[in-house]
Design a protein around this nucleic acid. Structure first.
Lengths: 343, 343
DNA sequence: TACGCTATTGCAATCGATTGCAATATCACC
DNA sequence: GGTGATATTGCAATCGATTGCAATAGCGTA
């Protein structure tokens, strides 16, 4: 009478309904070929009729595989806010889709909360078969710990060549070099760098910046490198507080992320500085908004799609006993109004 | 010799090392008071020394609780891309933190990939104890299905008062009403609405738009409501293709999201239209970039922090046998340059 | 000394599915 | 009819932790 409490059915219920043993039912549901075709169909049909779903927990326990990957997003201890950079969402979406496509679930964690010990929490406890760590932060020692513990994991970040774990990431150095060379080609003589070089990825971008300056025979002024967090606000404040007052005449700025660049642009425009005529500006990431601010933002586009897929592919390969290798992804300069003086 | 293979220890190993039974070890680790204090300490110490972590899978199987919540992000079938709106990341971050704080893990899924049957996949299979659905999409029938199936879940979206499930969301109608009333106060006589009203949240915003117009005695022109997807690109194209050519003279635009508004702004500025002098513009969401575009964007701020916490609180209450109630969160108009004509 | 009560601890079942191995049935072929 | 090979199916152990209930020990008191 009325709707039944819908107690979840178990495999043994299905087996009973189909008149076979649990083992036969299990094999039938997994399409094991030793099972007679008719039996298999019957079991599958009954399971479907009752909307039976294998209990994932029991299966995991028995098979010792969770088919779950933990994704950990590292971010600044300082910027204690929730994840903010739009770029993260981009790559997160790709990873989510790709994991699903491969039959894996995704457990998401932000470093703020689980800063204890990922290995214990996710791996030792069998919550996940492997880890994807996004961002190396400021040389986070926890990442190094993982590598010594035999945990399958891959990192999105900057490969320096020295790390003992696989790192997938954009060719930050070349991207920055392209960006700054472009600024120089537009006539810039004195270019500032906004970004916190304590992050490995940003450090690489700084090296690319130096590459471009040196290739052009421009003298490097260390004072033009300003540590700036990954937010529009940081870019805005940095520009207001430092760039104008302390730095003499600049004619170009390379911001280590689009978010920073947007803050910078705001500050410049507020001061009546014309972008790109007086100061040309280039960012990094190509977030969605970059094309739609005014002037639109020249930037370096990372291939998040390839990156996400590669992260997943490498991790799964590693989990299945194979090797995972670090890899650099090519980037592309997207020229927009914030830096284009000619034409 | 060398590093040991580090085979994971089980509870029975710890029990043996401590010289007690598994049951005692289990109780000791969970701080069960019936266990003698000395025994408890000894067991805990040994567990700590060996970095023992309870196997979450086994525990889940036995206790019938996964301490995991599945978060499902719905988005347009049309915009088949990965999650794009920065607003989502905001609330996702809050939910992640709050779940962690409450001892729950978060399983993230995007609707594109798991469009089968969430109930089966997440709940029947015991992967999750409950679901948080973000966005109702275009009256997604799958959400309704959930409610009839006894699955604990809550939705972030727009409560209409008719739904059979708990919906937490901003007071979209009032937010829109505030925004449009503000435009009218700035002198706008003819205000367009950009947003796809097939989404319940947007529909509410449209109602608020109508409220404000009617309160001001302004005639409603249905042609001024233009279905537009949640992206800057959609806003840009819509503005270019429709607003200029077909709509006569507008002096105000209310965009249903900041992303749309930014696209619109770009198109307006490209056409040499002065914002806010000729056309005043208001968005919705208060994403991080809104303060940093030029002119900065007036918008309606949603309280994502309260929203995320409330979603989690209601869901957990529901899981623990309590009730979950729909709730409307207050919003706030943030006045910025894109609409401020006076002063 | 015996009895009852409390404080601790252990035994064994249980959660639900998977799988190695044994058991049975079926069939071909000599 | 007998024998071995093959196709199906079932039994029972197993994954690792939790927990109801029984068992034991220790202690106070009549």
């Amino acid at each position: 009478m009325g709707i039944k409490p819908a107690k979840t059915l178990t495999l043994s219920d299905i087996a009973r309904l189909a008149g076979v043993s649990e083992s036969t039912a299990s094999r039938a549901l997994r399409d094991n070929p030793v099972i007679n075709a008719q039996t298999r169909q019957k079991v599958q049909q009954i399971a479907a009729e009752h909307q039976f779903k294998v209990n994932a927990t029991a299966r995991s326990l028995r098979t010792q595989k969770s088919y779950t990957i933990a994704v950990i997003i590292l971010f600044d201890a300082k910027t204690q806010q929730a994840i903010t950079d739009p770029f993260l969402l981009d790559i997160l979406g790709v990873i989510a889709d790709e994991l699903t496509r491969q039959g894996y679930d995704m457990l998401l964690s932000t470093s703020k909360t689980t800063d204890k010990d990922w290995r214990s929490y996710y791996f030792d406890s069998k919550r996940a078969d492997g880890l994807i760590v996004i961002g190396q932060g400021e040389h986070d020692e926890r990442v190094e710990q993982l590598s010594s513990a035999g945990v399958p994991f891959v990192v999105w970040g900057a490969a320096t060549g020295n790390e003992s774990f696989p790192v997938i990431g954009s060719d930050n150095r070349q991207g920055a070099q392209l960006a700054v060379a472009h600024l120089i080609a537009q006539g810039c003589k004195r270019v500032a760098f906004l970004g916190d070089i304590r992050h490995t990825e940003i450090e690489m971008r700084y090296l690319g910046y130096l590459d471009a300056l040196q290739a052009a025979g421009i003298n490097v002024e260390p004072a033009l490198q300003l540590n700036t967090d990954f937010t529009a606000q940081a870019g805005y404040l940095q520009t207001q507080q430092t760039l104008f007052s302390q730095l003499g005449s600049l004619d170009g700025i390379f911001a280590a992320s689009d978010a920073i660049a947007m803050g910078t642009m705001k500050a410049l425009l507020e001061h009546g500085i014309k972008v790109p005529q007086q100061v040309a500006l280039v960012g990094f990431d190509d977030i969605a908004m970059s094309a739609y601010c005014t002037p639109s933002l020249t930037t370096v586009k990372q291939d998040t799609h390839a990156g996400g897929k590669l992260l997943v592919a490498q991790l799964l390969s590693r989990i299945n006993g194979g090797k995972a290798a670090s890899q650099l992804l090519p980037v592309k300069l997207i020229e927009r109004q914030s830096s284009l003086r000619k034409h």
